[in-house]
Simulated assay, not measured.
Amino acid sequence: MAEPEKRDIDIEDLADEAGADAAPDPGAMTAEEIEALRAERDELRDRFMRALADAENSRKRADRDRREAEQYGGSKLARDMLPVYDHLSRALDVVTEEQREAQKAFLEGVELTLRELLNVFSKHGIEPVAPEVGHSFDPQLHQAMFEAPVPDTKAGEIIQVMAVGFMLHDRLLRPAQVGVSSTPAS
């Protein structure tokens, strides 16, 4: 294989070969040409900075979306599991003492299932919102199913809890369903 021919390269030769592609001599440029180049430079710098900012915003948005998907991605499944909790709770609530003695092993199994469901909920950031009778109604956490005047209560006080609500981390998955007193203040 023959070695390439070595020759001395002169900067002026390169400039002659480059022709119009070579950078113009700043001394030969007019003030208008210099100002046009500065304007083009400023425009390119502005576009570059905007592209950098857009890329950074996209990265932050993607990171936020990923975190939300991790934290709240299972909300549909969790919402679909809430009736299972409701049915198990109601089944345990309607059992009489006589039935409890006759079906002790069966009811223990239902209680264990309900406890395990609550453990799984807790593991995934789902916590019950269980108001008690006498607490104040909070429209951020509770849904008023009815209002009724009840003696010895204040307006806006919870008088009955029909269904427990649930939070998924810091979001309301389902409000607690409650009855609220409408007794006017004396």
Rank of each mutant, 00 (worst) to 15 (best):
L173H: 08
K60V: 13
L88E: 00
E111F: 02
R45C: 09
A51H: 10
D170A: 04
D46S: 13
L168E: 05
A22S: 13
V133T: 04
A23C: 12
E98H: 15
A22Q: 14
D21K: 09
Q140T: 11
D65M: 06
K123M: 15
M49W: 14
F146A: 11
R171W: 11
E70I: 05
E98A: 15
L168I: 00
H135N: 11
R67I: 14
E40L: 12
H124R: 10
A155D: 15
R67C: 06
A130I: 07
V180F: 08
E98I: 14
D46P: 04
A144I: 05
E127V: 01
Q71E: 11
D170P: 06
L168S: 05
E43D: 10
R7H: 10
Q99M: 14
S181D: 01
R47G: 09
R67D: 15
D8P: 00
R90A: 07
D21L: 13
K76S: 00
D13W: 13
A62V: 04
A163V: 06
A18L: 14
V110W: 03
G73K: 01
L118M: 14
A130L: 10
P4F: 08
H87G: 10
E32A: 14
T153Q: 03
D86I: 03
V120G: 06
T183W: 05
R41L: 11
Q177C: 05
V178C: 05
R100I: 03
H142M: 10
G179A: 07
V161N: 02
V129K: 10
L88G: 00
E5D: 09
A69P: 00
E43W: 10
R67A: 15
N119I: 05
E108F: 13
E68R: 09
Y85P: 02
F106M: 12
A163P: 07
E68H: 09
V161Q: 06
E111I: 01
Q99Y: 12
H124D: 12
I11A: 12
E35D: 14
M1R: 08
T113K: 07
R90T: 04
D16I: 12
D46E: 13
